[in-house]
Amino acid sequence: MRKHKLSLTVNGIDYILEVNAGEMLLDVIRDHLNLTGTKTGCDSGACGACTVLMDGMAVKSCLVLALQAEGRKILTIEGLAQDGALHPLQEAFIEKWAIQCGYCTPGMILTSKSLLDENPNPSEDDIRMYLSGNICRCTGYQKIIDAVASVRPLQGGRHGKK
């Protein structure tokens, strides 16, 4: 297999790796970097479990060739907590019981972060629309919506505050 050089930043750390043209960003994150917080679900772009942020934008890493991420900044769930303190979204998911098995949670949280970065005060409908590409098979969604809604600054949430 032909190897190609890939430079990218994951959770603030610069990496230079060698990958095949057909390798997925998801597999590079999990298998080369051992960051297994990003989950493999449907592996076909439907379930959203593999969502990461690429230059701040939510993408499904199972549908991104690793080489497409050349020079990009990737954020995975492992990069969200700062200095041992959980991100407000992570705290909200715990507080609102928005986790059951937890498999969809990293994708849910990163997609929610992207939403709140774009629009700090989304309506409940906005949240539902934005999360429509992320499937959860346990909680029934309402608690996830509640968790995201509770982080909105106008609701006294702390998203975006340092």
Binding site: G45, G48, T51, M57, A58, V59, K60, L63, V64, T111, S114, M129, Y130, S132, G133, N134
Partner: peptide, 12 residues
């Protein structure tokens, strides 16, 4: 576009 796939797919 709002009705096309999911936001992650529409981003790329």
């Amino acid at each position: 576009e709002k009705q096309l796939a999911s936001v992650q797919i529409r981003n790329l």
